[in-house]
């Protein structure tokens, strides 16, 4: 089982935070302007890939999740650079997938969760053009994901962290710059949440994330058919990635630990949810 996480910039790459993982996705896919974004251009990406390789880890490179026509040149430039050094490219946009699979047919291509792969038909189509791994649409249940896996494609599932519940054309958080007293790109360094009734959401760049942590620690056996477990941590601080990674590494290698589970609870700001794995509302948590 491959354990993966994502890291947005060089500043977030400490040895401890990388150690528990087999593979790291590099770059912030939700916003170009994120400080030090590894996929926004510059030399940091090469340094990050090099560092991962020295540590014996796979280096996958994420791409901007919602590119319009005007963004394509920039996205393709990042891919061209990444293709020479990285072990895989993650694309959340079908146009980006089309480009990578055509230009770099030998590259490992991963369809991210925002690519909206809901059906086995789409999984088959993407597999046929060269996509080798899929993070299925977040709304799918476990039985749905098993069907995707039956097509022959690898599947990667989020086992912990905050997943997107929406993505749009702009950063809505920027509208609150004066109220918060911080401008872009500093504003999203603050821990902030949208709250209404029973809902908590985390605004971040173009994306809006689940405010609760998706947690499958107690249900991990039900996901063992997957090829990779993802800790969705691209918007989190370094310590989060390190502690959560260590706990899931222990879970994979040694099994359930009550104290580890309690530690997960203490890390989560707004509690747990199971996402859509059990055909329930995404914010509901079912104890194991």
């Amino acid at each position: 089982m491959e354990l993966t996480a994502n890291i947005p910039n060089l500043e977030s790459m400490s040895e401890c935070s990388i150690k528990p993982y087999d593979s790291i996705y590099l770059g912030m896919p939700y916003c170009w302007e994120y400080e030090g974004n590894l996929i926004a251009g510059g030399d940091d990406l090469s340094s990050a890939i090099e560092l991962l390789h020295v540590m014996g880890k796979n280096a996958y490179v994420s791409t901007f999740a919602v590119p319009r026509n005007k963004d394509l040149k920039r996205v393709f430039r990042a891919i061209d650079l990444a293709a020479e050094m990285s072990d895989g490219i993650e694309a959340n946009n079908l146009g980006v997938m089309r480009y990578v699979t055509k230009e770099y047919p030998d590259m490992k291509v991963i369809a991210g969760g925002l690519a909206n792969v809901y059906t086995a038909s789409t999984a088959e189509l993407l597999y046929s053009i060269g996509v080798s791994r899929i993070v299925p649409a977040y709304e799918l249940s476990i039985e749905d994901i098993e069907k995707i896996k039956e097509t022959g494609v690898e599947v990667e599932v989020v086992v912990h962290g905050k997943v997107p519940v929406g993505i749009g054309h702009e950063c809505f958080l920027k509208k609150f710059s004066s109220a918060v007293g911080k401008e872009c790109p500093k504003i999203c360094r603050e821990e902030m949440f949208f709250r209404s009734e029973d809902l908590v959401l985390k605004p971040f760049g173009h994306a809006t994330l689940s405010g609760k942590d998706i947690c499958m620690y107690e249900h991990i056996d039900k996901l063992k058919f997957a090829d990779a477990f993802r800790i969705e941590a691209v918007t989190e601080r370094i310590g989060y990635r390190e502690r959560i990674g260590r706990i899931y590494r222990n879970l994979i290698e040694r099994g359930f630990s009550r104290s580890d589970f309690e530690e997960l609870r203490s890390i989560s700001e707004n509690g747990f949810a199971n996402g859509y794995y059990f055909n329930k509302a995404g914010q509901i948590y079912i104890p194991g």
Partner: peptide, 15 residues
């Protein structure tokens, strides 16, 4: 504020 096919807020709240 989201792209239409890229919003799961409703089912995150209630399903």
């Amino acid at each position: 504020f989201t792209y239409l096919g890229r919003c799961w807020m409703s089912s995150y709240k209630s399903l």
